[in-house]
């Protein structure tokens, strides 16, 4: 298959615009060491299918490829366990990220760990990747209404977990 100079230029523009986002998307899910590999594969696949790329919705299309690749790559149980661990372990640490976990965020981190991977992904698409519901539905390959239902359910389950998750005992030296 040949490619026109315009298409090549278009792809280069899309690459420049979206590579950082795709890399961040992948890194959030598979960690730094594999994130770059996933991002590279995403764009290699995108190039091969560039003639079919939805020009008005490139970002969710690329994220969709990344999502499928991550799911495919990590389908094996041990991989899934690894992913699960990573997603829960990669909470921001105060010294590095200059973030301070509030009591609420500690609670939500605990609740997050109890969510299913599917719920986490549904929520992460809007909370971490900053996608609109329409974009998130494109990533997951469902229609917007379906995604909206999934999001609502995931949100409810998270809220429920937040209500039932006990507050952590104050650590020694705590000022509380």
């Amino acid at each position: 298959m040949t490619v026109s100079a315009d298409a090549s230029s278009e792809f280069a523009d899309a690459f420049t615009a979206h590579y950082p986002g795709v890399l961040a998307f992948a890194t959030r899910r598979v960690g730094e060491s594999d994130g770059e590999d996933v991002a590279a594969e995403v764009f290699a696949r995108a190039w091969n299918a560039w003639h079919k790329a939805p020009r008005q919705a490139i970002r969710p299309w690329l994220f969709g490829i990344a999502h499928n690749l991550v799911v495919d790559t990590y389908r094996a149980k041990e991989r899934r366990d690894r992913l699960q661990t990573r997603m829960s372990a990669q909470r921001p640490s105060a010294p590095d990220d200059q973030l301070r976990l509030t009591e609420a965020s500690v609670d939500i981190a605990r609740a997050w760990q109890q969510l299913s991977l599917s719920d986490r992904e549904t929520l992460a698409l809007v909370a971490w990747d900053g996608l609109s519901q329409a974009e998130a539905s494109a990533v997951l390959g469902c229609n917007r209404a379906t995604y909206s239902v999934r999001l609502s359910r995931a949100r409810k389950r998270l809220t429920s977990l937040l209500e039932t998750t006990p507050n952590p005992a104050p650590s020694e030296g705590s000022s509380r």
């Binding site: 890194t27 997603m87 909470r91 921001p92 939500i108 997050w112 929520l123 909370a127 971490w128 998270l158």
Partner: peptide
Amino acid sequence: LLSDLNPV
């Protein structure tokens, strides 16, 4: 609040 958990 969830966005605070964003690893990247």
